[in-house]
């Protein structure tokens, strides 16, 4: 039984390895430095960093209370809420972008008010790119954080209460430190997802060099005009993704 399994497993492993090997083969190592410091690449790298970190912060700010409510409270419609919060995980990102447009574009029911009252326009702005990335990244954080909140024994919180801790102290000194590893893992996953975001970003925030053209967009659009730059940027994304996998191996390789 083992031998056919090994054969099939090898084939599956090759399926993952070969494209990456092909990518490595196409990297022009001699000009890698110059490719990565070219204008479009530098803009893309910087913008991706800003947007993905911003999206991660937004995901934590919004995802933490959401995960808490989902993990700790019982109320009608909780499953529905969880389903909605996790929907972007399976939703095609372009659809997410279209949905964001219908809410936050200048003619969207929220976007119209934002523009009318505050003069704020999210589409075609870096903030919009961040928002699009948050939309697809937050579920990763919510998922990890909710699992974290569920996995801790609430009797530890009882113990803290019995020692005289106020609710805020319990959360700060007992609950958070105990779920910290889950929160960190969720944040890293959300960040990696935000970094790779393409569909929702290009649909909602557009593709403006230096403003909303993040790494994946730059890869896609440089592929024809400057394939070397596109490959070099792809290499950066592969290395970062690999780094995330290695950093998280303790959580996944049980």
């Amino acid at each position: 039984m083992n031998r056919p399994a090994v054969a099939l497993a090898s084939a599956a492993a090759l399926f993952f390895v070969l494209p990456l090997a092909g990518l490595l083969g196409r990297v022009s190592w001699g000009t890698l430095g110059a490719d990565l410091s070219s204008g479009a690449a530098r803009d893309g790298l910087w913008l991706s960093l800003v947007c993905s970190v911003g999206a991660t912060v937004l995901s934590v700010i919004g995802g933490l209370p959401l995960a808490w409510v989902l993990a700790r409270m019982r109320f009608p419609g909780r499953s529905l809420l969880r389903g909605l919060a996790l929907l972007p995980l399976v939703l095609p990102p372009v659809v997410g972008g279209v949905a964001l447009l219908s809410a936050f574009a200048r003619r969207g029911f929220v976007g119209a008010r934002l523009y009318e009252w505050f003069g704020v326009q999210l589409t075609f702005t870096t903030a919009g790119a961040m928002l699009a990335e948050t939309f697809v990244a937050m579920p990763f954080f919510v998922l990890a954080a909710e699992a974290g909140f569920r996995s801790i024994d609430t009797r530890y919180e009882d113990a803290a209460v019995s020692l005289g801790a106020r609710p805020f102290t319990v959360v700060r000194r007992v609950t958070f430190p105990m779920v910290a590893p889950s929160l960190a893992a969720g944040a890293v996953l959300a960040w990696a997802r935000a970094l790779g975001e393409f569909g929702a970003t290009i649909t909602f925030a557009g593709n403006i060099a230096g403003r909303t053209q993040t790494l994946p967009l730059a890869v896609y659009l440089q592929l024809e005009s400057h394939p070397d730059v596109a490959i070099a940027l792809s290499l950066v994304l592969v290395v970062v993704s690999l780094g995330v996998i290695v950093a998280m191996r303790d959580r996944w390789a049980v």
Binding site: R155, Y156, A159, S162
Partner: peptide
């Protein structure tokens, strides 16, 4: 003051 069954010392 309460001592719990499996002590529940804060692990961190």
């Amino acid at each position: 003051g309460m001592m719990f069954q499996d002590y529940l010392l804060f692990p961190h």
